[in-house]
């Protein structure tokens, strides 16, 4: 249980001279939920994209390595990388409204993920899609729909089912609820928590919201302006934050949390 499945070492990424990630190091343990917290623009998404080696073309990786199962992913060939993405490490993006291809049916978009890695014979792909849709509590008919026919919450479920369809070793969730209506956020979070518990998933959960951290994380890693300013077990960081910045972030919780409790919950 204590083994490190992913380890980021001294990662530095810049756009031109602007270093958006600087000397970031942290690790993720199997079966744990690691929360990556920080304000907007602190480099959370860039860190996540580095793990898949999918940084934008304009970004430049200055130094560092990312070890997955003991192998540096930056040493992998294109074919090995391709097979790692989605299969070993899957990601759900921040923006459910633009993350799905508008002209392709949901079913096909999930099927692609499954068949790209040949994890099951062709004849079973259909069954597998059904299964992954039911995991996120979407009706079977969703496969025939196009993204524009779904609500934001439903799209994020589709993204989640796509990410889960290959049984990834690590699931990266990049602010999966930030773009959603507050009333739907709780549903999606509950769903994620349920699936995580159920499958003992290893999750990197990106958020800027400590109330979410409190409910879901085992370990916390706080980022600010591209640097990790504090990391440790959830209890330690939340109980006795060492850093003023962390304290400020935590201070935002009660207000948001209270509001959320009172809102009626509508299924998305």
């Amino acid at each position: 249980m204590d083994e490190k499945i992913l380890e980021i070492k001294d990662l530095t990424v810049s756009f031109g001279e602007n270093r958006v990630i600087e000397d970031v190091s942290f690790s993720i343990k199997r079966g744990e939920v690691t929360a990556l917290v920080g304000e907007s623009g602190s480099g959370k998404t860039m860190t996540a994209l580095s793990i898949l080696d999918l940084l934008p073309d304009t970004a430049c990786r200055r130094k560092g390595e990312i070890l997955f199962d003991g192998k540096n992913i930056f040493d992998l060939g294109p074919e090995e990388l391709r097979d790692m993405r989605g299969n070993a490490i899957a990601m759900v993006f921040q923006e459910p409204f633009t993350a799905l291809n508008p002209v392709i049916r949901i079913g096909r978009q999930i099927a692609e993920a499954v068949s790209a890695h040949g994890i099951c014979p062709r004849s079973e792909v259909r069954e597998r899609i059904k299964e992954s849709l039911s995991t996120v509590r979407l009706p079977e008919e969703t496969v025939y729909q196009y993204p524009h026919e779904l609500s934001g919450g439903m799209r994020q479920r589709v993204m989640l089912s796509m990410a889960l369809s290959c049984d990834p070793a690590i699931l990266i969730l990049d602010e999966p609820t930030t773009a959603l209506d507050v009333s739907i956020q709780k549903h999606i979070l509950d769903l994620i928590r349920h699936i995580q518990k159920d499958r003992q998933l290893t999750v990197l959960f990106i958020t800027h919201d400590f109330s979410v951290v409190r409910t879901i994380a085992d370990k916390v890693c706080v980022m600010r302006r591209g640097r990790v300013v504090e990391q440790g077990a959830k209890e330690d960081v939340l109980g006795e934050p060492a850093c003023e910045y962390t304290r400020q972030l935590i201070a935002c919780i009660p207000v948001l949390g209270d509001k959320r409790e009172r809102l009626p919950v509508v299924d998305g």
């Binding site: 923006e95 993350a99 799905l100 291809n101 508008p102 692609e112």
Partner: peptide, 28 residues
């Protein structure tokens, strides 16, 4: 577009990413 990033993150081949995901939208 973001859906192209999604397609890459799924582990699709570059060929498929370009000829299916990007091109079908670019054709409109």
């Amino acid at each position: 577009q973001n859906y192209v990033l999604t397609a890459r993150a799924k582990g699709l081949s570059e060929r498929r990413v370009i000829l299916v995901h990007a091109l079908r939208n670019a054709l409109l």
